[in-house]
Amino acid sequence: MPAFVPVIASLLDNDLYKFTMWQAMLHRFPQTTAEYAFVCRNEPRFPLADLLDEVNEQLDHLCTLRFTDDELAWLGALRFIKSDFVDFLRLFQFQRRFIRAWAEGGQLRIHAAGPQVHVMDFEIHVLSIVNELYFRRVDQAQALEVGRERLRAKIDLLRAVDVAPARAHPLEIFDFGVRRRFSGAWQREVVATLRDEVPEFFKGTSNVLLAKDLGLVPIGTMAHEYMQTFQALGVRLRDFQRAALEGWVQEYRGDLGIALTDVITMDAFLADFDLYFAKLFDGLRQDSGDPIAWGEKAIAHYEKLRIDPHTKRLVFSDGLDIPKALAIYDAFADRALTGFGIGTHFTNDVGHTPINIVMKLVTANGQSVAKISDTPGKTQSKDETFLAYLRQVFNVPQA
């Protein structure tokens, strides 16, 4: 038997937005229960069920980890992290009884269920575990050789960018690659290399541990699960987006001001994103649909509200690579602040097809929740009746 090598060695090895959503839910709805389900959206090289024993071994290890004093001191120094949340994390430990992995018809199933503040943080760790176990079965030396060659090409492409002083706003790129990375070690190498080689463009990472260790800005605000949870928190369904945005404003009071727009499509979001929210939030994040069309809608909305788009940031994070990011930047660099979160293209471009895996919120307080994406393939719900009702309430046509 080969020696056990943990995929996750630190609970800080996670996206910042998991911590910011976690804090908001702990403060406002600590009693909420939730279920999260793992899904693979594409066809892997071999059945992921083959990884079951290794996944369970890694989950056993994950549930032994605790935050260290050093990690908590660093996290607590972020001005938007409250001391009582740090105290909670000091006591926190994953409970193995809240997560289960099994094989079913050749598929790997992973299900986490329990109090939301005890299960919501499983997501990114589970995805990192499955990814790294999957790619441990390829030739590591060859993959890293390809990855370094491609990383060098990306750096050369960035260095060739002509960001003339005439452009109104700078090109700013971030690493968003925790969930789909080839390995934790490779993500660290990629992020450190980008920090050292193109600091004029590379401005931070969503990985909190790497931000701490490499002296970078941690990047992130909210994900879909935060907004979706409000579909089951007792507010009128038509008002769930406004309730979620208001809860965020009350929690962070000016910090972390980038709102996610595609929980029920950009059009339905903008119908709720009135002058009040448009002034309170610093900008918007695009995670599905046509990025150019989305950016045009965002700018038009700000202009309609008589808000100068140059004072707002448009963050793009949907399946980006460097050429796509540069094309979007070219379209909006003179019209608004921009930012580009690049994931798989940075942390899993090593010559092997990545697996498209997610672990999403499916119920809260026993009630189904749903996402109606601007990309039809990303729409998600296990309850077609609730999905149809959500479409009706927000007047979102079937794709």
Rank of each mutant, 00 (worst) to 15 (best):
R167T: 07
M120F: 08
H118T: 10
T311W: 02
L65P: 06
R152S: 10
E43P: 00
A34L: 05
D318Q: 13
F346G: 00
K312V: 01
G283T: 05
M222F: 10
P44K: 01
R179E: 11
L52R: 03
M120N: 14
S83Q: 15
F19Y: 15
R253A: 15
N14H: 14
F316G: 01
G289D: 11
Y329G: 03
I328D: 04
A143N: 13
D267P: 07
V350Y: 06
P165N: 06
N348P: 00
R79E: 10
L12T: 04
A168R: 11
K304C: 00
G339T: 00
K324V: 06
G204W: 05
F92E: 04
R137T: 06
I357T: 14
A325H: 08
F92I: 04
V146N: 10
L62P: 03
L275D: 14
Y226E: 04
F202E: 02
G76E: 06
P199G: 05
W102S: 13
E145Q: 13
G105N: 11
F94I: 05
F281N: 05
G254Y: 05
F201H: 12
F174K: 01
A293H: 08
A399F: 10
F394H: 15
R195H: 15
A388Q: 11
A160N: 07
A259G: 07
S128I: 00
L320R: 03
L52M: 09
R41A: 10
F38W: 02
L127N: 08
A77C: 08
A298F: 14
G204S: 09
I129W: 07
F281R: 04
F85A: 05
Y329D: 03
I328C: 07
D139F: 03
L48S: 03
L151S: 03
T33F: 03
G283W: 12
P115G: 14
Q241I: 07
V163T: 14
T353M: 11
D87T: 12
I124S: 13
D330F: 12
V138I: 11
G343Y: 01
V55C: 04
G366Q: 03
P47R: 02
D262W: 12
L11K: 00
V235Y: 15
L48D: 00
G247C: 09
F340V: 00
V126S: 07
F386T: 02
Y252A: 07
R391E: 05
A331V: 06
G215K: 03
I173E: 09
A388W: 02
A3E: 12
H352N: 06
A211R: 03
K378W: 12
L194E: 04
D239K: 14
Q58S: 04
E123N: 12
G254W: 04
Q367V: 05
A143R: 11
E296R: 15
L280K: 15
G254I: 04
H352P: 01
L256M: 12
R137E: 10
E251L: 09
